[in-house]
């Protein structure tokens, strides 16, 4: 289980990366933490002619907070979890990130790498989508921001063009409260299904808006606006009804691990539980 031969560049600047991408296009892969790409290379599921290593590329780390919070693409998951500002301002990440992989993978794995990889069950794409965040892409032509709603296109497929790289992730500050619930066969596995919730309540404590996101159900994370359910307090009945309604609108994957009916079931149950978690937090 060894990779095909590839050329290797340890890029020191974003400019270098973009030059190489322009030249190599589809034949190049960007190596971040290597938690997904490494196995794919070793299994020869990825056979690039060039690997561009971002691990010592300047300008891809760090956390800045203005309106939104911006994390550099190469911010390690462990670094993010240890950042009090990020965890306070984006509480959904604080709830979700302990479910990502393991201690030994979060130490190397990056935020940008997970989002670029776009596994339909992964936690970070789900959180970004639920919060309505954006991915910042840069190419030789300049940079653009793509809403998470448009970024994830399918299994391991995104809106990133071959000449583009992710430089940063923008996490909006959302007021309200949050819930995250995941079921996996084993601790640390990719989720069978995960539900992420952001809810806004009005002055009377009734649901006013927010989003419910689901991972591991369709071929990409999906999120649903909660405005249409606004008007009543989030209790078990409402949570059940909302989640069941939303689960019914999904078109779940059907594979040997879990069939569509089960994924839809989990979507409803975990959606409800995530809503209740968020509501409980709002009430406390």
């Amino acid at each position: 289980m060894k990779p095909v031969a590839f050329d290797y560049v340890r890029a020191s600047s974003i400019e270098e990366v973009l030059d190489l991408l322009l030249e190599a296009g589809d034949d190049a892969v960007l190596l971040a933490g290597g938690m997904s790409l490494g196995p794919m290379l070793n299994l020869r599921a990825a056979t690039p002619s060039l690997v561009i290593d971002l691990n010592r590329t300047a300008g891809l780390g760090g956390i800045t907070a203005n309106g939104a919070v911006t994390t550099g693409a190469m911010l390690r998951q462990t670094q993010a979890m240890r950042d009090d500002l990020l965890m306070t301002v984006v509480p959904l990440l604080a709830k979700a990130m302990p479910s990502i992989g393991h201690y030994q993978t979060r130490s190397r794995g990056t935020l940008g790498g997970s989002i670029a990889h776009a596994d339909p069950s992964a936690e970070l794409p789900l959180c970004l989508l639920t919060l309505g965040g954006e991915v910042e892409l840069q190419s030789k032509d300049g940079s653009r921001r793509v809403a998470a709603d448009d970024f994830f296109e399918g299994v391991l497929t995104t809106a990133r063009q071959p000449t583009e790289m992710i430089t940063a992730i923008h996490w909006p500050r959302r007021s309200g409260s949050f819930g995250f619930v995941e079921e996996a066969q084993r601790h640390g596995d990719f989720a069978l299904t995960a539900a992420a919730v952001w809810i806004e309540l009005d002055a009377t404590g009734s649901l006013a808006g927010g989003r419910l996101g689901l991972g591991g159900v369709e071929d990409r994370p999906v999120a649903f606006d909660l405005k249409e359910f606004a008007g009543a307090p989030v209790d078990e009945n409402l949570a059940t009804q909302v989640a069941r309604d939303i689960a019914g609108r999904t078109d779940p994957m059907d594979d040997h691990v879990a069939d569509a009916a089960y994924r839809r079931q989990l979507a409803g149950v975990l959606g409800k539980r995530a809503l209740m978690e968020a509501a409980g937090e709002a009430g406390s």
Binding site: M1, K2, Y8, R10, L31, G34, M35, L37, G38, P39, N42, L43, V51, D53, N55, T78, H102, Y103, Q104, T105, S107, R108
Partner: peptide, 28 residues
């Protein structure tokens, strides 16, 4: 060799890392 079992874990600059999903040239 696919980053799951953890047997190959070493510390790279103090950080625990699977050495099967890192390449030697990266650790130069």
């Amino acid at each position: 060799e696919h980053g799951v079992c953890g047997a190959c874990t070493v510390l790279i600059d103090g950080v625990p890392s699977r050495s099967c999903t890192q390449y030697a040239v990266q650790a130069d």
